[in-house]
């Protein structure tokens, strides 16, 4: 069951499929009319809630996860919308500007996608404070718009946090196969973003702690970021990444591989709970 194919199929008979998600009532009415043309399996996730008996988790539970994801995507999208074109951004080489612009576009598409899926159930965008001041506008990242290295450090932290956040929610949408697959298909894009931002930071070689090497993957619980005003806050996004036991299997030295804790920790990314994620991003949200 490939979501892209499903939507493509629906678009053939209903070119305005996305618009119709704006209204759950309209969407349901429309898809009821289409029922003669489409197999039950070809029902998009917004309408899947009608078939909650066929799925184990209630639409409310799935929507909670989707709204959590939407909140994180709002955060990422607005962050990149703010930095693209900023004074700090304009000091970056053109390849870096292009990469950040492409990532910005991906995040904006994720917001639009999740909003379309949730329809009327979508939460509103919070008011963000990217200084990390919980709305005061005077947090440790004040001045980020003028500082490209701080922008990259923030981007890396947001991307790595997003990867961990999606991972932590997968089991909570498990019984809705379409939602799960869509979430996984966002999750791996966030990991690709993180990989590239990390490469950019390594190339810059700024704001990196002595003794740490920034790689596309996460080593132990190293942040790879030295920004003293916010190091403690950033560390929360990486705590727990250092584990070397997976599903009860000690992977250190397993079969002669993973012969260091560093390598073992790199090979598996770790989840964060919703509560952990919210405690990380709370400083970026005005109450």
């Amino acid at each position: 069951m490939n979501f892209q194919n499903i939507v493509n199929e629906i678009e053939k008979v209903d070119p305005e499929v996305y618009d119709r998600f704006d209204s759950r009532r309209n969407a349901m009415k429309k898809f009821a009319n289409l029922s003669g043309k489409l197999a039950l399996a070809a029902v998009p996730m917004a309408v899947a809630s009608m078939f909650s008996k066929a799925y184990g988790q209630t639409p409310a539970e799935v929507n909670n996860v989707l709204n959590f994801a939407l909140t994180l995507e709002y955060l990422e999208a607005e962050f990149y919308n703010n930095i693209v074109g900023s004074a700090g951004f304009l000091t970056a080489p053109s390849a870096a500007q292009t990469a950040l612009t492409n990532i910005r576009n991906d995040e904006n598409k994720h917001v639009a996608f999740l909003k379309s899926v949730l329809g009327m159930a979508a939460v509103a965008k919070p008011t963000f404070d990217f200084t990390g001041g919980s709305g005061s506008g005077t947090g440790p990242f004040a001045g980020y718009l003028a500082n490209y290295d701080v922008q990259l450090a923030m981007a890396q932290t947001f991307e790595d946090t997003g990867v961990r956040a999606y991972k932590g929610q997968a089991a909570n949408v498990k019984s809705n196969r379409v939602v799960l697959t869509a979430a996984l298909n966002i999750h791996s894009v966030e990991a690709r973003h993180a990989s590239h931002i990390r490469q950019m930071r390594r190339g810059r070689n700024n704001v990196i702690p002595a003794g740490q090497t920034v790689k596309p993957w996460i080593t132990l619980k190293e942040t790879g970021i030295d920004f003293p005003a916010a190091n403690a806050a950033i560390q929360k996004s990486y705590d727990g990444e250092e584990v070397t036991t997976q599903a009860g299997v000690n992977i250190l030295n397993l079969g002669g591989s993973f012969n260091t804790a560093a390598a073992a920790s790199q090979g598996f990314d770790e989840p964060l709970t919703r509560e952990q994620v919210l405690s990380i991003v709370t400083i970026f949200i005005a109450p």
């Binding site: 999606y166 791996s188 690709r192 090979g267």
Partner: peptide, 9 residues
């Protein structure tokens, strides 16, 4: 999920 994000990296 823990492996696929590493593969994506």
């Amino acid at each position: 999920g823990q492996i696929v994000s590493v593969e994506a990296r």
